[in-house]
Computed example of a mutant assay.
Amino acid sequence: MQGPAVSGEEEPRPLLRTMLGDVLRRNRREQRRTLEDVARAAKVSMPYLSEVERGRKEASSEVLAAVCDALRVELSDVLAEVGRDLAADRVRRERVIRLDVALGRRTARPARRSGDTYCLAA
């Protein structure tokens, strides 16, 4: 059961191309390799690889395979990492609901005071 979002607005879901680009960039940086080096090894242009990493371009499966080969990582590992990041993002975006609302109780909301603390349960 989900209640209203705390901020009043729901965050948009992340795009697959953005999450995939983040994982590719993270792998490249962990290897301390330049965009130019990986683009050359993958036989794609440096501006195109940059756009893929920033989530602005949808890479074909052939390009993804070439970039993964250039990074010496398995495509399945990259996709698994994207899956974990998407799951973590979903948890981060989960809505917070008030316990009294979830239990169907109507209680008067006490005035908030400086120093008040709140307990959130998952």
Rank of each mutant, 00 (worst) to 15 (best):
V82M: 11
L49G: 00
E62F: 07
G3V: 08
G21K: 09
R28P: 05
D77N: 06
G3T: 09
L120I: 15
V23R: 08
Q2C: 11
D22C: 13
L71T: 04
S60D: 07
E36L: 14
R92V: 08
E58N: 08
A121P: 03
E81Y: 03
E36D: 14
L24Y: 10
D100H: 10
L99C: 12
D69G: 08
E10F: 12
G104L: 07
A59D: 01
G21H: 11
D37Y: 05
S61E: 06
A102N: 05
S50W: 00
A41T: 08
E9Q: 09
A66H: 00
G115F: 11
L20A: 09
E9G: 06
T107Y: 10
P47K: 01
T34D: 02
V23N: 06
P14S: 12
E36T: 15
D37G: 04
R32N: 14
A59G: 04
V82C: 14
R40S: 05
V44M: 03
V73A: 03
R25D: 06
M46Y: 00
R17P: 05
M19S: 12
D85A: 15
D77P: 00
L103V: 13
R92T: 12
S114T: 15
R98Y: 11
V96I: 15
R56A: 02
K57L: 02
C119N: 08
L16I: 08
Q2K: 14
E11M: 14
I97K: 05
D69C: 06
E58S: 05
R92Q: 12
A88P: 06
L71Q: 06
A122M: 10
S45F: 00
V78F: 01
R95A: 14
R93I: 04
V101F: 02
A5P: 09
T18L: 14
R56N: 05
A108Y: 07
S114G: 13
A65E: 09
L15V: 10
A87H: 09
E10R: 14
S76Y: 00
A88M: 12
R93N: 10
R56I: 02
D37W: 03
A41D: 09
L16M: 10
R105K: 13
L49E: 02
D22K: 15
P12C: 12
D85N: 15
S114E: 15
E74T: 04
V52L: 05
R54V: 00
C68F: 06
V52G: 02
V101Q: 10
L75M: 07
V67F: 00
E36C: 08
